[in-house]
């Protein structure tokens, strides 16, 4: 069986892939990066909090010009997952304004990014339209 590794450490793979945030135990602020302290209240203690896998598109852009090596066009978006904002690409959707709309309902989706020399497969994530 192929070993898998997530694109980022806040993507949890397995039977039910989901994102996990560092949640401040004092004020509930959520962050996806490694933390030194809470930017909201200064708290030092965090717990891992699972983020809802469904949400709605609060903002998007269709990127036609990007840094070299990045395939375009793609849809970059901010998805509101029941109060937690998540940055992601929208996947499994035609990248044009007829198919991508503000407020559209989406869900987390993972996809294989390729296998490295050691045989480990990296797995990325995006959000796809709800059927």
């Amino acid at each position: 069986m192929t070993t898998q590794i997530p694109l980022v450490d806040y993507l949890v793979l397995g039977d039910k892939p989901h994102l996990v945030a560092n949640e401040c135990t004092s004020c509930g602020a959520r962050f996806f990066d490694r933390r030194n302290a809470c930017a909201g209240c200064g708290g030092r203690d965090f717990i891992k909090a699972a983020v809802q896998t469904e949400g709605e598109v609060r903002a998007f852009t269709i990127v036609s010009f990007a840094a070299p090596g990045i395939p375009v066009p793609f849809v970059a978006a901010v998805v509101d997952c029941e109060g937690t904002s998540v940055r992601a690409n929208l996947v499994n959707v035609t990248p044009d304004p007829e198919h991508v709309t503000l407020g559209m309902k989406v869900r987390l989706a993972t996809y294989p990014m390729g296998t490295d020399e050691a045989g480990t497969e990296a797995v990325g994530f995006g959000f796809e339209p709800l059927p």
Partner: peptide, 19 residues
């Protein structure tokens, strides 16, 4: 800080100013 195994610009949204 995200423990990323690959560049995330273009994979997790966009870093470009127009975007």
């Amino acid at each position: 800080r995200y423990g990323a195994v690959a560049p995330i610009d273009g994979r997790i949204g966009t870093e470009t100013m127009p975007g």
